[in-house]
Design a protein around this nucleic acid. Structure first.
Lengths: 196, 196
DNA sequence: ATTTTTATTGAATGATCGTTCAATATAAAC
DNA sequence: GTTTATATTGAACGATCATTCAATAAAAAT
């Protein structure tokens, strides 16, 4: 009995607002009061749903990792044709990233991995899982005769290093044409690594 | 006349303390009071040397970029022998990075590039300059017959993407053996790109 | 309609923030 | 030793921080 709990809904709303405010003024400036003000609610309502600010921050980290995972939509193909594999690479090197999550907020969260072991572990697990999915994709493609590479694990590592290194650098590139040109170079190299 | 100014010395001391405190408790928690306390001085002395906190932060950004540049000790060889070129690649893929600058502080600073155009521009300029130096090195090596590659610019871009992507990911890797193994893979691939 | 649970508000807490300013100390120049 | 410029301290400022708690509102169950 009693009133139905809005906990799950409100917590999600708060974290989304936390993200939105962080995007605008920086994670380090996104206080409870600012987030509450942005939502049009009382700051103590946030305290009601998150016992401490740390708990809310943990929620943001989880949200960040979810989005990060969504960004790399790796699964979904059986990789029986070169076309399917190429589509995967296209996806990995697409600009979708920029639209799905703010890089400033992301790297601010990422910076925490160097001080918080638990956060580091969570980031590590996600990245390893993404690499694992790419390895699976490459193995499928190889089994189907689409590619003939030797070391799928190493290739996956290198492709991800290319992707992550590219996005790190491209975050500084303002010109859209330069951005696209540089990304294209990376993608071409990734395809070469696969013998495509 | 009057007392000799300690401005340059003190400003450097303060920024170093700012970095040290940030390394320990995070950039977002490194307040004037904490930095002053760490130095054993009065907080208002910091205000004396930096008009605003933003000015001090600008100093940290400059310090960060200096260190970043130092990390990649690219110049210094004439690249007449393969050995010299290999040493450069060794250097780029060394673990020296970790010891020279804290990654947490660095990525916190880097995150600001997404909100502050001036900071983004400064980061961009440094990275382009580093790429330029690698391109020069590759061109020298090519002129000396050490390597036979076609597109020096593209190769430099890809090598840096490998480096930066590798360090991004390796920041999460706790095991030293795994770290070294993965870094080795990246280095090997960089050498392959050069035909070595 | 009363009970029970949760939602939400609003005020208050003490701590810390960055900044300002007056007062004192110190060192170099005259 | 007086002047002059800078170093440094210490206190105070108002603003904002995260957190706590009591009070009220709303909805579901009996």
């Amino acid at each position: 009995m009693g009133r139905t709990s809005l906990k799950d809904i409100r917590q999600k709303e708060i974290i989304l607002a936390f993200y939105t405010v962080s995007k605008k003024i920086g994670l380090e400036n996104a206080s409870l009061a600012r987030v509450a003000s942005h939502m049009g609610i009382n700051p103590s309502l946030i305290a009601h749903y998150f016992k401490t600010r740390d708990a809310m921050f943990a929620g943001l980290i989880a949200f960040t990792l979810e989005r990060y995972r969504d960004m790399y939509n790796i699964n979904g193909g059986d990789f029986k044709t070169e076309r399917q594999l190429r589509k995967l690479i296209d996806n990995l090197f697409s600009r979708r990233w920029n639209k799905l999550f703010d890089d400033g907020v992301f790297y601010s969260c990422y910076a925490y991995t160097y001080r918080e072991k638990k956060i580091k572990k969570a980031f590590r697990a996600l990245h390893d899982s993404l690499r694992g999915m790419l390895v699976d994709a490459l193995k499928k493609a190889k089994a189907n005769g689409v590619i003939q590479i030797q070391k799928e694990e190493e290739t996956a590592e290198i492709i991800f290093a290319l992707i992550e290194g590219a996005y790190y650098y491209l975050g500084m590139v303002e010109s859209k044409t330069a951005y696209d040109r540089k990304l294209k170079i990376m993608k071409k190299k990734a395809l070469e690594l696969l013998g495509l």
